[in-house]
Design a protein around this nucleic acid. Structure first.
Lengths: 236, 236
DNA sequence: GCACACAATATTGTATACAATCATGTTGTA
DNA sequence: TACAACATGATTGTATACAATATTGTGTGC
């Protein structure tokens, strides 16, 4: 298993850093939806007591990144198709107008930071690290909320982005990983020109685009997947 | 201190029920912003170990209802003025369009439920229980999100409502507690007529109205309050 | 008498121990 | 052989014990 976060196993592992490490691993699709997160395993891996692990898991469950089933343990969340739609609908409520606000607030430094983000994302893609590219792509959206100076909305978007990553793991249809790069470039341009209206429009259409790239008819939860795996695709 | 939730001190107190009890107490302004929530006190009150209390507190801190300061304990949150504006801005992003959606989904039963909510709220006001009336008023907004069948957005609104209650405790200006009753009645009417556009407009103006009822120049955090309490209002 | 340092106390943070629950493997019986 | 009841092991839930940190009280030196 690949849980090698930056400081795995080292000392000074707080509940927060463990939560971050797990969150990153899930973001980057190193941990698949449905994966069991045993407390003993994690306490061994990170060298802390189960108490600390449980705090971290509780934190992640509040972000709906993992699901804690009573007396059965923690599992990487498997958003249903309904939840998937809800998440993208929520993003469509929050992000377009946040992008407008960001465009009005953005300084040249902000724009440079966004460009740097895209550069890193491309570098990750070139290195074949799709997971990291996806993570950085999410951070791009979060950065826009930060520029808009709206921490409360940024926090909500952050959670929605994490859940989006799980949704993409389960329901993504398109093959090309580059498909959104154009949208992000156009957004940067509009934000750099302090064009609020255009930024809002671009964000809106970008999100609709992402939303429409979901495979709406796939049956995701493990049980159904098990069916498919055992009976072959014909039964789906 | 008045922490007498429905089943205070009784058996079968889970972390969740403790969190609910505390959340309700904060909602109803029985616990003021800044109040220290000592772990030993709570474990005595509810008859559980500190472990259970801590999970409850952690849950509330994730909703930003309380603030946990490392090595110093948990306190009822004291949103800053900036946060106050952010919370209402976020609500203005989410709730109007959710109200529209609710209007399109609403069944007669839903409308009856909303009316019942208002009746209860009036009853609480007549009984002089302003705290409970405020709580019910918040639940009214949450109910609309539920009718819209958007759990993800409903969860976010739920958190924002709780924080709004704290904000009202700190920054509320108006005297009349009835001021929003009209707005809620109008909303029910529009939703009952399945008039999405009007519902959205009404919710928007209702939120703007609430937002504008905040005292923008009040200095809230305890430190300043302490100054005021010790030096008198002249120093503010 | 005042400020600073130090000690005592109280409270939180973390680890460990025990209890409860669930999953699984075994055995007995029809 | 098939099924059910039971026993075993593993894993989570809760409580307690210990360590670390912050707060408060006291004393000493100037």
């Amino acid at each position: 298993m690949t849980l090698n976060a930056p400081n795995t196993g080292k000392a000074n592992m707080t509940a927060e850093s463990i939560a971050s490490a797990l969150s990153l691993a899930i973001h980057e699709h190193r941990l698949a939806p449905g994966t069991k997160l045993g407390e003993d395993d994690l306490s061994d891996i990170y060298g802390v007591s189960r108490t600390t692990v449980r705090t971290a898991l509780l934190s992640l469950s509040h972000q709906q990144i993992i699901e804690i089933k009573r007396n059965r343990g923690a599992f990487v969340a498997q958003p249903s198709l309904i939840e998937a739609h809800e998440v993208f609908e929520a993003r469509e409520l929050l992000e377009p107008r946040t992008a407008r606000s960001a465009a009005l607030h953005a300084t040249p430094d902000d724009v440079a930071l966004l460009k740097d983000h895209i550069t890193q994302e491309h570098a990750a893609l070139d290195a074949g690290d799709r997971g990291r590219a996806l993570y950085l792509s999410g951070k791009f959206h979060l950065e826009i909320a930060r520029i808009a100076k709206q921490q409360t909305v940024a926090d909500m978007i952050n959670v929605l982005i994490a859940r989006s990553s799980l949704i993409i793991a389960l329901y993504w249809r398109r093959e090309s990983a580059l498909c959104e790069s154009q949208a992000h470039h156009a957004l940067i341009k509009a934000i750099g020109e302090n064009d609020g209206t255009r930024s809002e429009e671009l964000m809106q259409s970008h999100l609709v685009d992402l939303h429409s790239a979901l495979n709406l008819h796939e049956l995701p939860p493990v049980e159904q997947n098990l069916r498919a795996m055992l009976l072959g695709d014909a039964q789906r």
